[in-house]
Nucleic acid binder design. Structure first.
Lengths: 241, 241
DNA sequence: TAGTGGTCTAGACCACTTC
DNA sequence: AAGTGGTCTAGACCACTAA
């Protein structure tokens, strides 16, 4: 297909795998045989096999050969942030409060801080369709001499700025469940107490030491949130070269 | 670190990127300079850069150079299937009914079938903790001469078998939202009518032509489902070689 | 011992960007 | 014209697996 050798090899092998001509866990021809079959050099062939391996089609066992992989079809991917995840589109995000306070027991457990240190607590209300649709509580340890100009960059963006600066060093987790709204949440979202709301807990960790950097609770009105996820795609931009 | 040349180059460059020594969108040294710096051949260096590219750390622009990528921290990954996704662990899955019937308007819209063809409808009840926790309706076009022995492989596993046979050719989507239980759902799950339940819609498509192969609705009791997702990990098993 | 994949080198030619 | 990354080759040596 393409006028690039290693891609045409990839195309052909993919076809053989997706069509079922070579089934999962079955062995492929050896490198030397494939080199002959496609009339390419070893390095070129290996580039093709490398690509197929990266895309999850095959795996290799040293000394044995290449095998077709059985992919995991139960894996899904989605995107979540305070701007794109609510329905209809988010109109504005209102900063309710910024407090610097002593940590609760829960925070001392979660963060790597002592009870003498302080914690930043930010409350925000996310509006959509003229209504409050989500109430967010964000928590992070307070570090007074952080090289972020606190007055200039509002606290609301403080942690975003932090993430932006060192994007490779963090990882997130998210937990979503249904809970009954308590008085505070009901008040913020203007709903009845003991109505169901989505509770999304988002935690941000430092990759290398697994320290918790910050976490947020989002309380979301049921009708304003749909989670849509799909099988992860092979990322074209990350193609091997 | 490792006694493999290209991995030690990867380690060093990763350190420079994660530490912030080279910031997102900033250019790396050119291949020829890096070859000199690390005293490796071009192909070895390119293998290192290829790995970093695959893991999302860098990208390349032909004629210009290599740049540090700004990774997307809003992406999450999770696993969903009828065995591992409910709380506590699933005890059994009860097959309620298998019907072969004419398709509804909705099904004709979704599937690539005419109104004269037929559809398989499977109802299942997922038990956990002696209670029904989820009610599933599965739909797929009925193909009489499918090479699956219908009596042997129960219908409940019919589509699983299908997926297993051609795992590379399918992709899934999932949608999760809150809905109010209607009479049927309330009855199956033994809850009150007009209580909230999770509605999960899972659709399976053929990759090449985007045809819908089957879809399921899961109605799940709120307390028996928590979605847990996290930043996708670099898959060690798919490492470049 | 023969065959397998894993690492590594030193070249070559190309298309593209920048000046 | 000089520098960049992209493709491709023909070797070499190694560790591992299987008979």
């Amino acid at each position: 297909m393409a006028n690039v050798l290693y891609l045409s090899v990839v195309d052909d092998l993919k076809k053989k795998i997706t069509s079922g001509e070579i089934l999962p866990d079955k062995i492929l021809k050896s490198e030397s045989k494939l080199m002959e079959e496609y009339s390419v050099s070893r390095m070129t062939l290996r580039k093709s096999l490398s690509l197929l391996s990266n895309e999850g089609y095959i795996y290799s066992v040293p000394g044995k050969g290449y095998f077709v992989r059985k992919p995991d079809t139960d894996i899904y991917q989605f995107r979540f942030n305070e701007y794109d995840s609510f329905l209809p589109d988010v109109e504005k995000i209102k900063l309710l409060s910024v407090k610097i306070d002593k940590p609760t027991e829960e925070m001392i457990d979660n963060f790597v801080i002592s009870k003498d240190e302080q914690v930043v607590k930010i409350e925000r209300l996310i509006f959509s369709n003229k209504e409050p649709v989500a109430y967010e509580i964000f928590l992070t340890p307070y570090i007074p001499n952080k090289p972020v100009v606190e007055d200039k960059l509002s606290f609301a963006n403080y942690y975003k700025a932090l993430e932006m600066k060192l994007p490779f060093s963090i990882k997130n987790t998210i937990e979503m469940k249904l809970v009954l709204a308590n008085e505070i949440i009901a008040d913020k979202l203007k709903i009845q107490e003991r109505e169901y709301v989505f509770k999304v807990t988002k935690k941000t960790y430092k990759k290398d030491n697994n320290n918790l950097l910050n976490y947020s609770y989002y309380y979301i009105k049921p009708n304003y949130f749909i989670l849509f996820a799909k099988t992860p795609e092979e990322d074209e931009s990350k193609k091997i070269f």
